[in-house]
Design a protein around this nucleic acid. Sequence first.
RNA 1: GGCCCGUUGGUCAAGAGGUUAAGACACCGCCCUUUCACGGCGGUAACAGGAGUUCGAUUCUCCUACGGGUCACCA
Length: 560
Amino acid sequence: MNYNELAELLFPNVTLTPEDLEERYPPRNLPEGAKVVRFAPSPTGYVHFGGIYQAVVDYMLASQSGGVFSLRIEDTDSQREVDGAVEALVRTLAQYGIEYDEGVILNEDGSIGERGAYGPYKQSQRTELYAVYAKKLVSEGKAYPGFATEEELEAIQETDKKAEIKNTDWSVAAEQKRAAMLAGREFTMDEVKAHLAAGNPFVIRILADGDQEKKIKFTDMVKGVLELPENDEDFVLLKSDGVPTYHFAHAVDDHLMRTTHVIRGEDWLPSLPKHIQLFRYLGFRMPKYLHTAQILKIDENGNKKKISKRDRGAKMDDYAEMGYCTDVVWEYLLTLLNSNYEEWRMANPDVHYRNYPFSIKNMSVSGCLFDFDKLNDVSRNVISRMTADQVYTQVLDWAKIYDPEFAVLLAEKPDYAKEILAIGRGGKKPRKDITVWSGVKEYMSFFYDNLFERGDYPEGFPSEDIKRALAEFAAVYNPDDDNTTWFARLKAIAGDIGYAPEMKLWKQSPESYRGNVGDISMFVRVAITGRQNSPDLHDVMRILGEKRVRERLASAIAAL
RNA sequence: GGCCCGUUGGUCAAGAGGUUAAGACACCGCCCUUUCACGGCGGUAACAGGAGUUCGAUUCUCCUACGGGUCACCA
């Protein structure tokens, strides 16, 4: 077989050579140690947590090494492509401040554009590049055309289909597959000509020379030394529409873009042998690889599963909706990504997380469970460090989109809202009441008459006690009291009705009292705020104002 | 089923031959206290199992078990 003739037959219009492309995309002129990375998602829908997880690694490695970070869109599967996915992706990246140097961007008018000298950055626009290398491989006898249709292949491998995977007899399927592959390798030039003359579509397959039984040692920067079987599968390089498969595009693009480090999920590990073979066939130097651990969840059977679409926390939009600020997500991501991040954070409470010295060796090897408790803890801490103004602004931004009525309420009296949000804020031990923006309404609802609801008093106290305490308090309440004076009144009331006015007394002999001053303040709290948990009561009353305090006391007494 | 990866408390994890096996979250208790919180102190709780190497294995090797991933003209 004359492979050059075959290559010309298959790719008559390809005139560029690999050498031309080497010139078009020259090696990057970067300082020693600079990492060239790329985030390469496929635009198949929502932006997910795992994607951002990887993008953060890309960002940290590139920015901290003085390297280059590009955004490449892997849109080689038109079937699965979703409208607007690229835009959503770019927006989400921007929202999180994950800046990249090159790649697909959004123009001012909202259309999709790009920047950088190594483009195009959408794979669908790079087909002429892939053809150059496909032609080269064919001309070297390392790849060949396959004219079998999908239906024919499916018929041969009758059971090897994802939907039926559970019922598949794997040993049979593997044999059928192997046979089909070998059969596909046998063809004559005349057959090819006949197919082409008939206009039959074809794919380009690699001619695998590996042996499944032989192992290759490969070092992954996260996983360490791996032992993989050689590739013996004639996988598809170019689909019948001329669009490359992931494998081929990966090799060609990452070579031409001069990628030094490939960061991707560990679900790619099984196809690594394919990539090793491709890079060797193509004569490309392999980049370093970081196969990151997966984020898992517990499914309904109690097993760990890859986190996916339906799961809370999978879509990045979920975080926005629940009201987690982007800094919180970043910090949580960093705690998952690098085992010593929290330690660093405690030692450097005021340093921006972008300055955290990210290290590959601290990346986790095994998958981890998504943990909302932890996320919430990070969130409470981050928010507790904010000023009331910052909180107000962010809550308002959130509410405008997700709770317009609440946004109106907040915007009506900004100073009032800020005053509320300022309670217990600042100082060394700020309160940590707020976890997510979506919880703020509930947190401050009792400050708004139309949202105020009366809840239960603590159990175990006769309502006469409560009623009497409230009545006495209503009688002596003076809005001009300072904190100490105000509380002294509560102590006096406690004494009047047989409750310990001092905690110490209560501790000494709880049996001598009906309760303590803390209980009295709780009665007042419930009367005024409607709940048992609220920020500092004196501050609350000050902000509510005399009129409303009196109203609420009166209605509370009446309700008892 | 083949292949690959993984397995330290409920969760995230440090430790890389000799440690009382860190820390964080969650949970519990105590303290502080103007409630609830915050904070402080403390507690419960772990090296999947079995062989081997070794004076000594959580740490090295092998096997088993379990979990995960993957086996497309999807990425």
